[in-house]
Design a protein around this nucleic acid. Structure first.
Lengths: 110, 110
DNA sequence: AATTATTATCGTAATATTGCAATATTAAAA
DNA sequence: TTTTAATATTGCAATATTACGATAATAATT
């Protein structure tokens, strides 16, 4: 047992959940915010910014990349990570839709 | 070790991550959507709607309640769950802020 | 008071996540 | 080609999540 039964839910429900999971860690939020703060897309010094070991940061970057939120380009002997705007728009679409639904309903109970 | 080092990140980063985590499971998305679909706030039949055992659903409801996204009122010998609009607004605020930041930046790289 | 219906909690097993040290990979620089 | 720098992967330990059966708690009904 354990492990979520993704096949019992809709594609949309799984998609939102997966995207939410990708940003469900402060380190990954910090990475996204850092990529925004620095004006151009910055390479490896993400590691220096975070209070985590290089291996751990690399893992978080991988998860963000898997979720499609960031992309990495090889640039010299470093890798340039930056936010993937199209993917972020998709993320936004899901959430805005959810929020809209949440707002429409004026609680007539509780 | 393991377990996330929440104390090394900002309150805001942890807050977003925690809220994201609350909706980072398809069952919890399904619960929120169901609470929206039914017109008034409906009690226990959430269990019947989901492909999960009663104990499991109860756990997910607890997590949503802990995150403040839903609230439960005792109503007869059942409990009436419904979406907590104020909390949802807070959630929305965090995410909209994040999305806005993400949009402002026009990728001049990668 | 005993029964019934509804929800919560406990105990436990399976799996996933987090984190880091050590090591591998990759490509520029010497 | 060896060295150096940057990033990824592996292996492992600690912790968290997910799920469910069994049981407890709660409150209406009989």
């Amino acid at each position: 047992m354990g492990a979520s039964k993704t096949d019992h839910f809709t594609k949309n429900q799984n998609a939102i959940a997966t995207l939410a999971k990708a940003i469900a860690h402060p380190a990954r939020i910090a990475i996204l915010e850092y990529l925004l703060k620095v004006d151009s897309c910055i390479c490896g010094d993400i590691v220096n910014e975070l209070p985590l070991a290089q291996a751990t940061v690399s893992q978080h970057l991988k998860e963000l990349k898997n979720a499609g939120l960031i992309k990495g380009n090889i640039e010299g002997n470093a890798i340039c990570y930056c936010i993937d705007e199209n993917a972020v728009k998709k993320l936004q679409t899901y959430f805005v839709a959810l929020f809209t639904k949440l707002e429409i309903k004026n609680s007539n109970c509780c």
